[in-house]
């Protein structure tokens, strides 16, 4: 900009430096330091202690429960995300805005309420406990929801419910529905349209959505905490971290950080994946 004289240019440069410094200070203090702090704390008592605290019976059991809950929630929410995104971006209908707001509910309510909701549905006071009882009686099984693995799975699905659809909807809206309409007019069947036209557009958004959903499912704490009470049985990794940290001895706190470091690794993978995903999206935009 030629209109700017030297003084203004200098002022502009100073503002730039000040703002960058403020930003970097904030990022280092609030985001980098926590990461460093987890790693430092987890190796406080040496490498051997680190690996020992990762291989206790409790941690291994918690890892198993976490993986099961995550697999279920990623499966369910990926299916839901694809269906809901197709519905909300390919059709116009009454109540569309309401529906899309309702889908986002789990995003903005306290995870503790999610846990409470399932207790109130399937717990002793819940209206569905009778249904579960009669199913059990009929099949001769002993399925429990609350304070058992199914409850943990349901709570995890709940809190990660909108994650995949949220990533897909903006991409599908941006692409528009002309191609699908053309294909449909030419007689292509629904699934063929999805596979040949829609899917290539949303491939990367889907990958990222799944990664994000996985990370959130692995790390869910509040909702699961309300529904899971048995350490070594229904505890997930974040609950095990909580139990270790709250027991208060220096050893167990270090162990809590050691288990945390596993989840940090996954968080870092998510961030890197996001960066790659964004980079690809921007490159594609530039090419178009």
């Amino acid at each position: 900009m030629e209109i700017l004289d030297k003084k203004q240019l200098k002022a502009k440069k100073i503002t730039k430096i000040i703002l960058i410094v403020i930003s970097l200070l904030f990022v280092v203090l609030m985001l980098v330091l926590p990461l460093v702090s987890i790693i430092v704390n987890s190796f406080k008592q040496g490498i051997e202690f680190y690996f020992n605290s990762l291989s206790t019976e409790y941690v291994v059991s918690a890892l198993g429960v976490t993986v099961i809950a995550t697999l279920f929630s990623v499966g369910v929410n990926t299916f839901f995300g694809l269906v809901a995104a197709w519905l909300l971006t390919r059709f116009d209908f009454k109540g569309k805005n309401v529906l899309s707001t309702l889908i986002d509910i789990p995003f903005s309510i306290s995870p503790v309420i999610a846990g409470l909701a399932f207790i109130m549905t399937f717990g002793r006071l819940g209206w569905a406990s009778g249904i579960i009882d009669s199913i059990n009686e009929f099949l001769g099984t002993d399925i429990q929801i609350v304070f058992a693995i199914p409850g943990v799975i349901l709570a995890t699905i709940f809190v990660t419910f909108p994650f995949v659809s949220r990533e897909l909807i903006p991409v599908l809206n941006a692409v528009g529905k002309d191609e699908e309409e053309a294909a449909a007019l030419m007689g292509a069947k629904g699934f063929t349209i999805f596979r040949k036209i829609t899917f290539p557009h949303i491939k990367w958004a889907l990958v990222y959505g799944v990664i994000l959903c996985t990370a959130r499912a692995l790390g869910e704490f509040g909702a699961v905490s309300a529904l899971s009470k048995t350490r070594g049985g229904t505890f997930t990794l974040p609950l095990e971290i909580d139990a270790l940290y709250m027991s208060g001895s220096a050893d167990s706190i270090t162990a809590a950080f050691a288990v945390s470091s596993l989840l940090v690794l996954i968080a870092v993978v998510v961030l890197v994946a996001r960066n790659i995903f964004e980079f690809r999206a921007k490159n594609k935009k530039a090419k178009d």
Binding site: P34, F221, I253, A256, A267
Partner: peptide
């Protein structure tokens, strides 16, 4: 910037 979305809340809490 996205770290708080990706880091489990309990891990963030104890840290």
């Amino acid at each position: 910037i996205e770290l708080p979305f990706a880091l489990p809340t309990a891990v963030a809490g104890i840290t």
